[in-house]
Nucleic acid binder design. Structure first.
Ligand SMILES: NC(=O)c1ccc[n+]([C@@H]2O[C@H](COP(=O)([O-])OP(=O)(O)OC[C@H]3O[C@@H](n4cnc5c(N)ncnc54)[C@H](O)[C@@H]3O)[C@@H](O)[C@H]2O)c1
Ligand SMILES: NC(=O)c1ccc[n+]([C@@H]2O[C@H](COP(=O)([O-])OP(=O)(O)OC[C@H]3O[C@@H](n4cnc5c(N)ncnc54)[C@H](O)[C@@H]3O)[C@@H](O)[C@H]2O)c1
Lengths: 211, 211
DNA sequence: TGGATATTGTGAAATGAGGAACATTATGAT
DNA sequence: ATCATAATGTTCCTCATTTCACAATATCCA
């Protein structure tokens, strides 16, 4: 199994580039084109495909339609992916309102919160009390969850997800969640860290230039 | 100059862990403790510090207060960092409303949008017309910007930022921005990709287990 | 005070990802 | 039909980052 996250992220980028090419009427694509599109070298593209057993035609490149299909299968996008969000605050509702997920085959099935004021069963994406997470996730076979609670609530949210059978989590809370790695995949997005990182490099470049 | 992004991100994580330890009343810390806290090996911690010229005491570990101070200086947090946000939609306003930046020394000075309905000069964090970005950023010496516009508007937002003297950008739009690397630092956050990545690993683990 | 020990700091080794190179082969032209 | 050529697929190499290992040394305790 491939464990290199960057490699998988590149697959997603190839896929996005391929959709653009497809919509422009292209039928075939070469490793050079994809490399340009996502900013890597052609050999990287071929190596990535090779790793996942994707082959093209020597001198003929890759057929865009079948390449998209293969990538989608690898990325698990051949079936609708249902997601739940725990924590319907700033980030949670930003995700909930985002239109872009639908066309990517990602469907937000429901949100959960402990704040009674947030509950709304009638909304297109319902906001339900946290207690209902387990039953809902099991009933709807949800495999993927998003944690968008305050940091102090994140670990307990994770544990509820674990017991609800959720297998993958995107976590926005700025702390390291503890869980058995064999049981659940955790991807962290820490926006403060990302900003801090930009700040560091801006300052560091400044200092370098000054010296 | 250190160009390793992961290394800088670890510095931020050490810093966060140190604040927690400090608030618990600890005075000294060992590389083991920090390693546990952020999930790396102790030798990694020592090497990271060594790279940035941070030294501790053999057998005595590191003094938490002075370590925090050194990390903050390295990370550019010894001075308030003013940030502007372009695009005041779902993500932009989630960031705007987030309380956590303030205590990290990050201040959102203003937001910008092309939608007249979004403009609000009276708010604590004002939302201004996009045309005012350049003057505002120059007048307030803003170095850091966030792009939270739709993808089609992101490149032009970046170019406005460039001409406004902004040196670092956190970009949420799912595309590759073009800019001279020596003039501006760009950090991309692509939430769709992050979710897709979780989905991939969940499926991949499933298949591995099945086989 | 002195010896035992825990912990740092760093040079060396291992790992792993990315890039270069090239042999292979499908395509198209003559 | 044959040849020239363009593009793949894979091997090998390079480089960066991580991990190991240990000598150096500050601290603690007897
Ligand atoms: N908003 C941002 O821009 C931003 C930036 C950086 C980090 N973050 C992190 O993202 C997370 C979410 O941030 P936010 O700004 O959306 O927070 P928020 O306070 O706006 O929303 C949190 C939501 O979680 C709910 N909640 C609290 N405890 C809960 C629990 N135990 N179970 C379920 N729901 C619970 C609250 O009722 C609230 O609706 C936080 O951990 C924050 O540190 C956010
Ligand atoms: N919201 C999410 O959860 C989410 C998830 C994945 C990716 N993204 C990406 O993040 C970006 C922002 O997403 P969003 O959901 O906040 O979008 P949004 O549509 O809610 O907000 C975009 C805002 O940008 C403003 N805008 C449009 N053109 C502009 C311009 N030229 N200059 C300044 N402002 C302009 C709009 O008026 C609007 O207020 C998008 O690129 C989106 O693809 C968002």
């Amino acid at each position: 199994m491939i464990t290199n996250k960057n490699c998988v992220i590149r697959l997603s980028r190839y896929k996005n580039a391929l959709y653009r090419l497809q919509s422009l009427g292209f039928v075939r694509v070469f490793s050079d084109n994809l490399a340009d599109a996502i900013g890597v070298l052609p050999s990287q593209v071929r190596k990535d495909f090779s790793l996942f057993g994707i082959t093209g035609n020597k001198r003929g490149g890759y057929n865009i339609d079948s390449l998209i299909e293969k990538l989608n299968t690898i990325l698990g996008k051949d079936q609708l992916q249902k997601v739940v969000i725990v924590g319907t605050g700033n980030i949670g509702s930003a995700l909930m309102k985002y239109k872009g997920f639908e066309k990517e085959g990602i469907s937000i099935a429901a949100c959960f919160d402990i704040d009674p004021a947030k509950i709304n069963r009638q909304a297109k994406i319902p906001v339900l009390p946290l207690e209902e997470l387990k039953d809902f996730a099991r009933a709807n076979q949800i495999k993927i969850g998003v944690i968008a609670t305050p940091d102090v609530a994140a670990q307990s949210a994770l544990e509820m997800m674990l017991s609800a059978g959720i297998k993958g989590v995107l976590n926005f809370a700025p702390l390291r969640l503890r869980a058995p790695a064999e049981e659940i995949v955790i991807n962290n997005v820490n926006l403060e860290l990302e900003l801090e990182n930009v700040i560091y490099f801006v300052n560091a470049l400044d200092k370098t230039r000054a010296a």
